[in-house]
Simulated scan of single mutants.
Amino acid sequence: MELLKQKIREVGVILSDEVIKLDAILNHAVDPALTTAMGREFARLYRDENVTKILTIESSGIPIAFAAAQELNVPLVFARRKKSLNTETETYCERVPSFTKGIVTDIMVSKEFLDEKDRVVLIDDFIANGDAARGLIRIIRRSGATLLGLGVAVEKSFQAGGRTIRESGIRVESLAKIASLAGGEIRFE
């Protein structure tokens, strides 16, 4: 998606050969026009799959997932990272490490919002090592729902996440694939 690549070039801050900061458009602030365009693109890619739910993980995936869900006219469900006092006791829960945060967290989805009748597309902002996506995939499988694929705004293709998920037979659609951040330069596939 050329618009996304252009925005990444404009606002991306390379912190190392493995980390790019995209706070201005994905992780701290939201560019509504770009987010809407990304949602439309994911909807176009999955429109013929009879999607019944979009699933993401809080918090940075929510705006893009919302835009896709709105375009497809289906509910959005997001995995929560922390249990609150009113969290359902009947949840699917997985422990996942975060590459950028350097921590391990529990993610959970209420059994009320995901079951065997659902046809689900995962949407997320980034994929690096793929740990969060694999956690959500395990939740979907435990629920009995059908996983149609994964939509990722930005894939760091020099890391194994997207590749290993594809190798497991899951469809992965990435709107921008960063091949390298070496030498302080963003190179796309």
Rank of each mutant, 00 (worst) to 15 (best):
K21M: 10
K21D: 15
K21S: 14
D23A: 15
I25W: 10
N27A: 06
N27Y: 08
V30L: 12
V30K: 10
V30P: 03
D31K: 03
P32Q: 13
A33Q: 14
A33K: 14
L34C: 11
T35P: 05
T35N: 15
A37C: 07
M38H: 02
G39T: 13
R40G: 13
F42D: 03
F42V: 07
A43C: 13
L45S: 13
Y46Q: 03
D48N: 14
E49D: 15
N50Y: 12
V51R: 08
T52V: 11
T52R: 11
K53G: 08
K53Q: 04
K53W: 05
L55C: 12
I57H: 04
E58Q: 14
S60R: 15
I62W: 11
A65Q: 10
A67V: 10
A68N: 08
A69D: 12
E71L: 01
E71H: 09
L72H: 10
L72K: 08
N73R: 15
N73I: 05
L76H: 13
L76T: 13
R80F: 04
R81N: 11
K82A: 11
K83E: 14
S84T: 15
S84V: 09
L85R: 09
L85A: 14
N86A: 04
N86K: 11
T87E: 03
E88T: 05
T89C: 01
T91W: 00
C93E: 15
E94D: 04
E94W: 02
E94H: 01
R95A: 11
V96M: 06
V96P: 05
V96Q: 06
P97D: 06
P97I: 06
P97F: 03
T100Q: 06
T100A: 03
T100G: 01
G102P: 08
G102W: 02
G102C: 05
V104Y: 00
V104K: 07
T105I: 13
T105A: 08
D106G: 05
I107T: 11
M108W: 11
M108L: 14
M108S: 12
S110Q: 03
S110G: 14
K111I: 07
L114E: 04
D115F: 02
D118M: 02
V121G: 09
L122E: 03
I123L: 02
D124M: 05
D124C: 05
D124F: 06
D125A: 07
A128S: 09
N129V: 01
G130S: 10
D131M: 03
A132Y: 01
R134W: 05
R134S: 05
I137L: 02
I137D: 00
R138D: 12
I139K: 02
I140E: 06
R141M: 01
R142T: 01
R142I: 00
R142P: 00
S143R: 10
S143P: 12
G144F: 05
L147T: 07
G149H: 00
L150H: 04
L150C: 09
A153T: 12
F158Q: 04
Q159K: 07
Q159P: 00
Q159M: 15
Q159G: 01
A160Y: 00
A160F: 00
G162F: 00
G162W: 00
